[in-house]
Structures are given as structure tokens and as C-alpha cells.
């Protein structure tokens, strides 16, 4: 950046002495360079660099080491800033969870602001405690050891993908293709890790496909995200004649060696079933148990006895 800028300076200075860098226009006159455009060579170089990035990353993912390097630097900053900003960022969260309650306490609204804020943060602390408790219960229910982590960054919808950064990485025993859950159910899977952070692909991402099993009938199918953060997931059953019932719970059926998804993690409940007349298959809408819009404490499923720099919640609920 600096170098280019200085080159620009130098050229500008040089062109003051010899105005030959100005272009000849069609009429053969000297055309002064428009001061509002960058030098064409710079522009071409930058566009080519961008296009090269597209090719390198689009084909073989050759930029993975660079991504990791950037993550090693930016990840800890995200963790620190997210921790510092928590008193601010919990405000909408608290407003959301207390939405119904707030209507009932209209009469108390005249309470002074300081008191209300105190109540709000203590509420939040209680919620957090519940989240950790819930995680312990989850570890016991699904029968896997969990590394607890917090969400410190969420990808904006402008990027059209649903991803999140969590504040635990390879030094906590996390590796790509591990299942991420929270107290409510399946959150997603780990895409890549740095030493202190990991990137998680949420199950609501339009590219995410999870093997799902209808708990009631044991029918298997695929649950895909809709790309809508607060929206539903889609379940497509392999057995086209099978008809899931409304309210049936869907759990993961798991993959070989538990990667990327371990089995038996609750995903959501069936809310509607549509018959596709064209190929006579059934498509069901799943209301996810997890609220992807307000993720906070999550757990990453790790093999029991994993070496980690933080406490691992073991299957029996004990901390290791």
C-alpha cells in the first residue's frame, strides 16, 4: 500500500518535471491525466490480483494457509473485542428473550434506567449459567464429550453464507469436521481452525446438508439449510413413500467415525409436510431447535479424553 502510494508520489513528482506521462488523445493533443482516476497499471494489477485469488481459492482452495494465517491474527482480536463489547451486545439479546415479559411489566417501566440495566445484565448472567448447565446436560444426553466455546463473530448476511467464529481452536482439541451443538440441539460443523478460533458452518446455511432421521419412524433423509437465518430447514426423505408426522423430532443419523456429524443430536421438529407431485417425494419443513440468530455458548463434540487447554465436559457431566 505504502510502496504503491510512494511510487505514485514519485511519478507525480516526475511528471511535474516532464509532463510526458500525460496521454496523447485521439486528436493528437496532450491529454492531462484525470486526477480522479488511479493509475491504470495499478488498477489492472489489483484486478488481476483479485481474479487470481478467485481462481486459486475457487478451484482447489489453495488459499487455505492464507486464510489460517489471517485467522490467527484476526481471531484473537475478535475474541477480545467480542468479550469487551458484551455489555453492549447483550442488550438486543435481552430485549429479545424478554419480549413477552416486557409487555406484562409495562407498569414498571418508570424504574430508573440504571436499575433496569442491572436487571438486564443479571438476567443475562443467569441465562449464561443456564447455557453452560444446558451444555452439561447435552453432553450427558447425546453421549459425547464437549469442548465449550462462545460465538465471537458471525458472518453478515451480505456474504450469503451462515458462518460463525468460536473462541476455541486447535489448542483446545478442535479439528475440522467436528460437530457443534448447543443446549438446544445441532448448530453445525467446524469448517477450519486456527490455534485459538474455529469457523463453524451453521446448519441453516444453504450449502449445509445434514443426514437426519425422523425419531418416530427411524426414516432417514437429508436436512438442508434454507439460507434464512430465522427460517426453517428442509428435510428430504430417502424413502419416498414415508410420511413424517407433524411434530416428529428429527435427529442426526451420523456419519462414519463421527465426522462431520455424530449421531443422535436433535435438529428440529417437523412443522409441515409437502408432497412433490412431480417425483412423488415428500419434503418436510423442520423448525430447528436452535435459534441461529442468537447463538452464544456452544459445545464442540470431541472424542472422550481429548487433550485440551480448557475444561472438557465429559459424557458423565464431569469436567476434565
Amino acid at each position: 500500500m505504502t510502496l504503491l502510494d510512494r511510487i505514485d508520489h514519485d511519478t507525480v513528482r516526475a511528471s511535474a518535471a516532464r509532463p510526458t506521462t500525460d496521454r496523447l488523445n485521439r486528436r493528437g493533443r496532450l491529454q492531462p491525466r484525470d486526477p480522479r482516476t488511479p493509475r491504470r497499471s495499478t488498477l489492472v494489477a489489483l484486478v488481476l490480483a483479485g481474479a487470481t485469488m478467485l481462481t486459486l481459492d475457487g478451484g482447489a482452495g489453495a488459499l487455505e494457509p492464507v486464510r489460517r494465517a489471517v485467522g490467527e491474527v484476526v481471531g484473537p482480536v475478535q475474541t477480545a473485542v467480542s468479550t469487551l463489547a458484551r455489555p453492549i451486545t447483550v442488550v438486543p439479546e435481552v430485549l429479545r428473550t424478554n419480549g413477552s415479559l416486557r409487555e406484562e411489566v409495562d407498569a414498571l417501566r418508570e424504574d430508573n434506567a440504571a436499575l433496569r440495566q442491572q436487571v438486564a445484565t443479571s438476567d443475562y448472567d443467569r441465562n449464561r449459567l443456564e447455557a453452560y448447565d444446558g451444555l452439561t446436560a447435552t453432553a450427558q444426553e447425546i453421549g459425547y464429550a464437549l469442548v465449550p466455546a462462545r460465538v465471537v463473530g458471525i458472518g453478515a448476511a451480505q456474504s450469503f453464507s451462515h458462518t460463525a467464529t468460536i473462541d476455541a481452536g486447535s489448542s483446545s482439541g478442535i479439528a475440522p469436521d467436528m460437530t457443534v451443538v448447543n443446549a438446544d440441539g445441532l448448530v453445525g460443523r467446524v469448517l477450519r481452525v486456527t490455534s485459538t478460533t474455529a469457523t463453524v458452518l451453521l446448519a441453516s446455511d444453504a450449502d449445509s446438508v445434514v443426514g437426519g432421521r425422523v425419531g418416530d419412524s427411524m426414516d432417514v433423509g437429508f436436512v438442508s439449510g434454507s439460507g434464512d437465518l430465522g427460517g426453517h430447514l428442509d428435510l428430504e426423505l430417502i424413502d419416498q413413500g414415508a410420511l413424517p408426522n407433524r411434530g416428529d423430532a428429527v435427529v442426526t443419523w451420523g456419519s462414519d467415525k463421527g465426522a462431520p456429524y455424530v449421531s443422535g443430536v436433535p435438529i428440529g421438529a417437523v412443522t409441515a409436510v409437502y408432497a412433490n407431485l412431480r417425483d412423488s417425494s415428500q419434503r418436510a419443513e423442520i423448525e430447528p431447535f436452535v435459534d441461529f440468530g442468537s447463538l452464544d455458548v456452544v459445545g464442540v463434540v470431541v472424542p472422550s479424553g481429548t487433550a485440551s487447554d480448557r475444561a472438557v465436559i465429559e459424557v458423565d457431566g464431569s469436567l476434565q
Binding site: 483479485g50 456474504s159 469457523t199
Partner: peptide, 15 residues
């Protein structure tokens, strides 16, 4: 493009 949690093909935001 590269900082977590980005997961799209790198170079898109650059351009």
C-alpha cells in the same frame, strides 16, 4: 474475504 468466519470463494469482496 479471508478473515474468519468468511467461507465464500476469496476474491469476491476484493473485486
Amino acid at each position: 474475504d479471508l478473515a474468519p468466519p468468511a467461507d465464500h470463494v476469496a476474491g469476491r469482496w476484493t473485486l
